[in-house]
């Protein structure tokens, strides 16, 4: 790695120049190649316009949660405590894997027993690339968006896909 300041030939991967101590880490940082990549690297999660979260308490019954998901046309609900802090997420997948066929009376079950606890989340100023990485790596369809530690929205895999394809069409 040739130091851009003094021209010293450093070992590949050096963090600073062995001659002038110039920081070399920016040399390895990826550069955006096109508009989509630039948006992924620079735009924050809030650019997707996350929908306001639909929240429920942990003692809500599963039957109520199902009705809420249906009425609001969504696939995941955020479960919050009395101060609004995020406890978990309750999604269609939880219903499929933990409820359907295993329990009869949905009105007698509480969401707290079936939700996915402490879900992965993103901050509203994280980049879209970061959110894409989390969704793809974890296999999530929904990610809670936090601002100052409180849930402020939810982004879905479809929001990301729509954003990327819209950039492609422009």
């Amino acid at each position: 790695m040739i130091c851009p300041t003094c021209g010293w030939d450093n070992l590949p991967g050096s963090e600073e120049c062995g001659h002038c101590q110039q920081d070399l880490t920016p040399l390895d940082r990826p550069l955006p190649q096109d508009r989509v990549e630039r948006s992924l690297m620079e735009d924050p999660v809030s650019a997707l316009g996350p929908k306001p979260p639909v929240t429920i308490a942990a003692d809500t019954t599963v039957a109520e949660a199902v009705q809420t998901m249906l009425a609001r046309h969504i696939g995941a609900l955020l479960v919050v405590d009395s101060c609004g802090g995020l406890l978990g997420i309750f999604s269609e997948r939880d219903l499929l894997t933990k409820v359907a066929g295993l329990h009869e009376d949905l009105a007698g079950l509480t969401v707290g027993d079936f939700m996915t606890r402490a879900p992965d989340s993103v901050a509203d100023d994280d980049t879209l690339a970061f959110a894409l990485h989390k969704m793809d790596g974890g296999g999530y369809r929904h990610l809670p968006v936090l601002s100052n530690g409180q849930p402020s929205g939810v982004i879905s895999v479809r929001d990301l896909l729509q954003h990327i394809t819209r950039l492609c069409q422009e």
Partner: peptide, 12 residues
């Protein structure tokens, strides 16, 4: 989405 993530390996 996985395909898109793979398309931007250095970014994502």
């Amino acid at each position: 989405v996985h395909y898109l993530a793979e398309h931007f390996p250095s970014t994502v």
